[in-house]
Computed example of a mutant assay.
Amino acid sequence: MYTKEQFSIPPAAMAAFVRRKSFGVLATHLGDEMFTSPLPLDLRGQAPDGLFVAAHIARANAMLAAFEHRPRATITVLGPDSFAPAEWFGTRSRIPTWLYCAVELSGRLEPSDPELTRQDLLVMMDRLQKRAVEGSTWTLDEIPDHLSGEYLKHIAGFRINDLTMTSCFRLNQRKDHSESLADALAASSDPACRELAPLVAQPPTLQSA
Rank of each mutant, 00 (worst) to 15 (best):
A12P: 09
L116H: 06
L43R: 01
P48A: 13
P11K: 07
A55E: 02
Q46C: 14
H146E: 14
H177Y: 10
G31W: 05
L105T: 04
R59K: 10
T3I: 08
K4E: 15
H177G: 08
I57S: 11
S208D: 08
P203C: 12
A58M: 05
H29Q: 15
A27T: 11
S37N: 14
F52A: 15
S136R: 02
D162N: 06
A182T: 07
S167D: 00
A47G: 06
A132N: 06
A186E: 03
D162M: 03
R108M: 12
D162F: 08
L41P: 05
V18A: 13
D162G: 14
R92Q: 15
N61T: 09
E5A: 15
T166H: 08
T137H: 03
Y151C: 14
T36K: 03
S22A: 15
P11V: 00
A73R: 02
S180Q: 12
A132P: 01
I75M: 06
L171W: 02
Q202N: 15
P204T: 06
Q129F: 09
L147I: 11
P10Y: 03
D176A: 15
D42P: 04
S167H: 05
D141F: 01
R20I: 01
E87F: 06
S106V: 06
D190V: 07
D120S: 14
D81M: 11
C101M: 08
W88E: 07
L122Q: 07
G79Y: 01
I57T: 08
P114G: 05
W88M: 15
L105F: 04
R159M: 10
Y151V: 11
D190E: 13
W98D: 14
F35G: 04
A192E: 01
H177C: 14
P80Y: 07
W88T: 12
L152T: 04
L199C: 11
